[in-house]
């Protein structure tokens, strides 16, 4: 870059706040909590990004979008690091992101309900319905049911509202 001062990391975080998630364009990559670190190493900008799901096909595309945004802002000397640890959790979605999801028709994740492989399914069975109380993002009803543990993208499950009868996506907890 041919400027005297390098842009601050806060400025860069704001730029990345303009990069939409390719699958859920109402939220940005910073809303999603996957931009883990932004730092300058000398004149080189280092952006650490963590994948949501190991096999998420959007991961490579997100990196390209971040790269395009940085180049667009005049940053030429940078690198994007993959950071696996600590692993991404849906708890990192910002409060604003959750409201944006709801307005978009996706029920936001309920923190602290990530499955541990042993108890969640069992508890659901004992409770008589394999379900969490997930509010319908359209009518707000809590009378909803899980249709499938997986949905249209790796990060979502399929639900249905018993009151307004609309199907909807639930941003699954991990």
């Amino acid at each position: 870059m041919v400027t005297d001062t390098l842009p601050s990391t806060d400025t860069i975080r704001n730029w990345l706040g303009e990069v939409p998630d390719p699958e859920i364009p109402v939220i940005s990559v910073t809303d999603l909590g996957i931009v883990r670190d932004i730092s300058w190493q000398g004149d080189t900008l280092v952006v650490a990004v963590t994948p949501t799901y190991s096999g998420c096909p959007a991961t490579a595309f997100i990196n390209m979008e971040i790269e395009a945004k940085l180049r667009d802002k005049g940053i030429e000397d940078f690198r994007i690091e993959r950071r696996l640890s600590p692993p991404w959790t849906s708890d990192w979605l910002t409060p604003e992101a959750r409201e944006k999801l709801r307005a978009y028709g996706i029920a936001p994740p309920i923190d602290g309900t990530a499955p541990d492989g042993r108890t969640a399914a069992r508890a659901a069975r004992l409770a008589g319905r394999s379900n969490l109380a997930v509010d319908c993002p359209r009518c707000g009803s809590t009378d909803t049911e899980k249709v499938s543990q997986h949905g249209s993208t790796p990060c979502k499950a399929a639900y249905r509202c018993r009151d307004c009868l609309e199907p909807f996506d639930y941003f699954k907890c991990i």
């Binding site: 600590p86 991404w88 969640a120």
Partner: peptide, 18 residues
């Protein structure tokens, strides 16, 4: 890698058990 994959496998195990 194990910490990352483990979360996804926990979800899979829940579903498969069910």
């Amino acid at each position: 890698i194990a910490a990352k994959a483990g979360k996804e496998v926990a979800y899979q195990l829940d579903r498969a058990s069910d």
